[in-house]
């Protein structure tokens, strides 16, 4: 076969195939925000005052909370990376507890978020970057099997600043693995200077900041397994430190509890949150 002008033939074929994306049928886009579920998802947000992209992550979480106010609990983790105060007069929101969770879930960038500490298929890490995709992971978790409920009861004495949180886990199906309970205290409405892509943001409000973990990162084992309908309670006590530099304001604090499948699987089954002062 003698081809006088193979390039011309190739160009024609290429241009023909280049138009083939027009042949495709459109892919329907599902509705978002309409999922009805009793699941409560734990979102751990890796953030910091010196993280320029983190305000975008926090804005995304606000939108998710608006969309699913009863289905999401957020904990802001100010681990070492990019957590240094921008203004030296600001409180340092870093805690060793946040750093320990970062080590437990794996190092990464900021902003990132973990959703029920789930390692999603096709994701290399538990921590997910790109805030614009976070809603997708929340909805995946809302559609996942609801294995257990978690109730939280809060008792706070403002004089002694002592809080008592009782978590009650109720299995909705047989759980053939160890169940662990976790308890942390968070604080909102903390005003600091925040770095952003456009520079410093004075009086930026940090929400859901992890202030104290009352349990180890892997939680405390409350059962080797649970039968459907079985309930197990666990109480945690903590005395809030004295208010200092606008931190540990009891009115801004909340108790967060969650139950997980332990240290190796890490997967969070259900979360719950209660303000110290309603």
């Amino acid at each position: 076969m003698k081809m006088k002008n193979p390039l011309l033939i190739a160009v024609t074929v290429i241009l023909f195939f280049a138009s083939c994306s027009e042949w495709e049928q459109p892919v329907p886009i599902p509705d978002s925000g309409n999922i009805k579920s009793e699941r409560v998802i734990l979102i751990e947000e890796f953030t910091g005052a010196s993280c320029t992209n983190c305000p975008a992550g926090s804005a995304e979480l606000k939108a998710i909370l608006d969309k699913y106010p009863d289905n999401v609990v957020v904990v802001g983790l100010h681990s070492k990376f990019l957590s240094a105060p921008v203004d030296p007069a600001d409180p340092n929101l870093y805690t060793d507890d946040a750093e320990n969770i970062e080590i437990f879930l794996g190092r990464g960038a900021k902003p990132e978020a973990a959703f029920n500490r789930n390692l999603f298929t096709h994701n290399r890490n538990i921590r997910i970057s790109r805030p614009d995709t976070w809603n997708n992971f929340v909805e995946k978790e809302l559609l996942a099997t609801h294995q257990a409920d978690l109730r939280i009861a809060m008792d706070y004495d403002s004089l002694s600043r002592k809080m008592n949180m009782t978590l009650t886990a109720i299995a909705r199906q047989d759980i053939d693995e160890a169940v662990h309970a976790h308890a942390v205290v968070t604080e909102s409405d903390i005003s600091i200077t925040q770095l952003s892509l456009t520079g410093k943001i004075p009086n930026y409000i940090q929400e859901h900041v992890l202030r104290k973990a009352l349990t180890p990162v892997g939680g405390i084992k409350i059962a080797d397994s649970m039968k459907k309908g079985e309930s197990i309670s666990k109480s945690f006590e903590f005395t809030l430190p004295a208010q200092d530099n606008n931190l540990w304001v009891a009115e801004n604090c909340a108790a967060v509890g969650f139950i997980s499948l332990g240290e190796s699987k890490k997967y969070v089954l259900q979360a719950a949150e209660a303000k110290l002062i309603k």
Partner: peptide, 25 residues
């Protein structure tokens, strides 16, 4: 499907149409 789910999380003004094929020449 993952793209469609991400797009659904965007407000209407920012939504994009997922597609299977991309060509480059």
């Amino acid at each position: 499907q993952d793209q469609a789910n991400i797009s659904s999380g965007y407000l209407l003004v920012d939504q994009f149409n997922p597609s299977y094929n991309t060509n480059a020449f």
